[in-house]
Design a protein around this nucleic acid. Structure first.
Lengths: 211, 211
DNA sequence: CTCTTTCGCTACGAGTCGTAGCGTAACTGC
DNA sequence: GCAGTTACGCTACGACTCGTAGCGAAAGAG
């Protein structure tokens, strides 16, 4: 599940040190904070984790795979508490994304691995399952909840529903990422409120508030 | 304007070869296509451009700065033809962004330099003025045009108007980037149409179409 | 006790980085 | 012209990182 290079799964032999995995991933995050993506070296991570460099290469294929696993763990924390309304739930999602993207280790790592993935299909798939899908869960959960509340109509056509969900996910995640990393402006409660207003009601609603 | 390291601007001395600048930037884009960001080396770019490696270092501080300039030139092409309505103009912006992000050289470079900029403030500012602001122009022009058409109300408060413009820009650019690079799905006319519908009318309008 | 796998360690060739030093080329002002 | 100044191409260099190979020792299974 975690290691890119799985143990041979045969019987017998010395088992892998599971604690080393945790130490390596934690050291990776720490190195990301202190050095950033580009200056992070696997040799340095190995030293921090107290393992040999060769052990690292026996478990992960390279820097990208290791970093994806290291930051993916942070996305496990994502949840979507029921805040009572669709608008409040959206703000909750936005603020959770923002909190994760605010961490220095995710800031520098996420964009870098996505950049790598543009010419590495297996890596892209790895990112999708380890990180992206864990975010998308929240969107799907929020929509389901809104439908149960009657805030959104049910969906007869599952194909169209999937397309719309993908669209909404790209809009939410994309906007937060762009705001946080490209514009480099804070994603605070005020911004989340205005974004939610725009998403729910469109440009007309946003205009009614601020113009 | 282009070179990160400006010529001393004093009188006398041999002038810089301007043609070399163009050759270097073109070679950089070519190398990005063939090698991608991570495998691109300055030595390789210098060889392609037919200049010495030292010349490259005399003009640019490093890989990030060079690549930013190389891809920034592509963003000069951005324009916003009047398509007659706000909706059509938005679709035009989306498709123009998508066309740029579809190029392999921008695909791999944009995310990488943004990742670098998370721990390099001057680089971030450079990206802002060279790339981001050239995109934002289109959003501002589209809004102005829509106001002249009467599709959007005028804006008395310039501060609030600026905040809203920033918000809309993050939503549009973020969604397109996320769709194209993270989700790795095509940004075609169909997607652009559905996105525009969502942006103009909000979730309710999107639901009315597909649910 | 044997077989199997992992681990830490050392060492290595290959490649990249960014810079220094040198001689030459190109342009300006006297 | 001629001196002063800057850009250029070239070579060479130490420092660093990469990913791997080889070794002996450790830890479990049967």
């Amino acid at each position: 599940m975690q290691s890119r290079i799985p143990p041979p799964a045969r019987t017998g032999g010395r088992p892998r040190n599971a604690a080393a995995d945790a130490a390596i991933l934690e050291s990776t995050r720490q190195a990301l904070v202190e050095l950033g993506w580009s200056k992070l070296t696997l040799g340095d991570v190995a030293t921090r984790a107290g393992v040999a460099k060769t052990t690292l290469y026996r478990r992960w294929a390279g820097k990208s795979e290791l970093v994806v696993d290291a930051v993916a763990e942070l996305f496990d924390e994502l949840e979507l508490p029921d805040r009572g309304s669709l608008a409040a739930d959206i703000e909750g999602v936005v603020l959770q994304f923002a909190a994760l993207l605010g961490r220095p280790e995710t800031k520098t790592a996420l964009m870098a691995v996505v950049a790598e993935s543009t010419s590495d299909e297996p890596l892209r798939e790895r990112i999708r399952t380890s990180i992206v899908d864990r975010q998308k869960r929240l969107v799907l959960a929020g929509r389901k909840r809104a439908q149960e509340r009657g805030e959104l109509p049910p969906e007869p056509d599952p194909t169209a529903a999937g397309l719309t969900a993908d669209l909404i996910f790209d809009v939410i995640a994309g906007a937060v990422v762009h705001r946080a990393l490209v514009s480099a402006e804070p994603v605070d409660e005020d911004w989340a409120r205005r974004f939610t207003l725009l998403l729910l009601g469109g440009l007309a609603a946003a205009a009614a508030q601020t113009w």
